[in-house]
Structures are given as structure tokens and as C-alpha cells.
């Protein structure tokens, strides 16, 4: 059954939908967690410390998310390759009636997000790109996540990179999230406008939430 399911276009689309939904869920939680930066240094560092002190939760979660990400990536690329093969001769005159920019650039935005994830991990998780901000500790001797983030974001190149990445994430989510109910067969004519609206709204909220942090650091709200 699994072979038939994964072999079918509809089955694979469902997998992309489910994995996308999980990744979207992670992005929401991750954003909410990070937004604690606006509560100040102590709550954020305490939150980070708490997470680090739960390795039995953290590591399975990390492994799970990585697996989900890889499945999402693998299946999406597989579909994308098939899609290219399905039209070997392109049209001379190309036009689009109602497909959104977001929907037409999913593979590109997805790959950009992948690159960003690698950078983001190197930056904040492994401390490889800016070690000077990574080894700071706060007054309670905890890893000073707050300082690491704020100091990093004061660098225009870094905050610019994050803003740009969030723009692509937003584009990706705006199509991806509203597609989930379609791919999983929950959609119908009554709900379609709501799902479309909700997908775009969610993407925009994520964008605003995540970009508020580098912007706040740049303009000096976060010190």
C-alpha cells in the first residue's frame, strides 16, 4: 500500500501537505518562542535554558523535524522533477491567468529557505558564523541568547539576510499553507476562500513576527 501511495501523485502531494503542516507548526512555535525577546533578556535566556535542559525532548524533536524536513524536500523535488518532465517542449508564448507568484516559485523559495536554515543553524545553533556573539553569558551564567541575537542583528548584513529569508518564507507559506487543505482533500467551494485567506494571513503574521526582531534590533528598540 505504501508503495502505491507514495507512487501516486495524490499520495505524495498529501505527504507534502502533512510534512508542510508540521513544519509550519514548528515555525509558529519557534516564532512564538523567539518573540519572548521583547519580554527582555531574562525571560528569553530562561526559555533557552529550559529548552537546553530538556535533552530528552529537544533531541527527539530535532531529529523528528529534520526527518520531516528531508521528507518534505525529497517528495517535493521528486514531484517537481516529474512536473518538468511532463512538459518537455515549453510554450513559446507563456502567460498566466490566475496562478500566484508564490505558487509558481515554490521550488525556488523552498530551496532558498533550505539555504537559510543551514545558515540559521550555523549562526545561532552551532555558533559557527559569528562565534564572537555565541559565547557570551548573562548575569546568571546562562548562555546569553538575548545578547547573541541583538548584537547579530545590529549588523545590517545579518539582519538584511534574515529579513530577505523571512520574505521568501512568507511567500512559500502563503501558497503552502493555503494548499494544505486542498492537497489533503478538506477543501470545498464554501471553505476555499477562507483557507486561501487564512494561509495568506498566517504567512503574513509569521513574516511580521519574525522580521520584527531584526528590525527592532536595527532601530534600537532591542538593546
Amino acid at each position: 500500500m505504501c508503495k502505491e501511495f507514495l507512487g501516486s501523485s495524490v499520495g505524495r502531494k498529501a505527504v507534502v501537505g502533512v510534512t508542510g503542516f508540521i513544519l509550519f507548526g514548528f515555525v509558529v512555535v519557534h516564532t512564538l518562542g523567539n518573540l519572548q525577546i521583547f519580554l527582555g533578556r531574562d525571560p528569553l535566556n530562561a526559555y533557552a535554558y529550559k529548552l537546553q535542559s530538556l535533552p530528552w525532548l529537544l533531541w527527539p524533536a530535532r531529529v523528528f523535524l529534520l526527518a520531516v524536513l528531508l521528507v518534505h524536500l525529497w517528495i517535493s523535488l521528486w514531484l517537481a522533477v516529474e512536473n518538468r518532465r511532463a512538459r518537455p517542449t515549453p510554450y513559446v508564448f507563456k502567460d498566466t491567468v490566475q496562478a500566484t507568484l508564490a505558487s509558481r516559485t515554490m521550488v525556488m523559495t523552498g530551496l532558498i529557505i533550505l539555504l537559510f536554515i543551514v545558515y540559521h543553524l550555523l549562526h545561532f545553533t552551532f555558533g559557527a558564523t559569528n562565534p564572537e556573539f555565541f559565547h557570551l553569558t548573562d548575569a546568571k551564567g546562562r548562555h546569553d541568547v538575548y545578547a547573541m541575537v541583538v548584537l547579530s542583528y545590529r549588523n545590517y548584513w545579518i539582519s538584511g539576510t534574515y529579513l530577505l529569508a523571512m520574505f521568501f518564507l512568507c511567500l512559500h507559506l502563503s501558497h503552502g499553507v493555503s494548499s494544505i487543505p486542498q492537497s489533503l482533500g478538506w477543501n470545498d467551494e464554501r471553505w476555499d476562500p477562507l483557507f486561501k485567506w487564512a494561509g495568506r494571513a498566517a504567512a503574513l503574521v509569521i513574516f511580521m513576527g519574525n522580521s520584527s526582531m531584526p528590525l527592532a534590533a536595527v532601530v534600537g528598540i532591542l538593546k
Binding site: K13, L79, E82, Q98, A99, M106, S179
Partner: peptide, 8 residues
């Protein structure tokens, strides 16, 4: 090909 929900 496969559907990518573009609705063209």
C-alpha cells in the same frame, strides 16, 4: 504532471 494547486 502533478497538481501544485495553482488553479490555472
Amino acid at each position: 504532471g502533478n497538481c501544485t494547486n495553482q488553479y490555472e
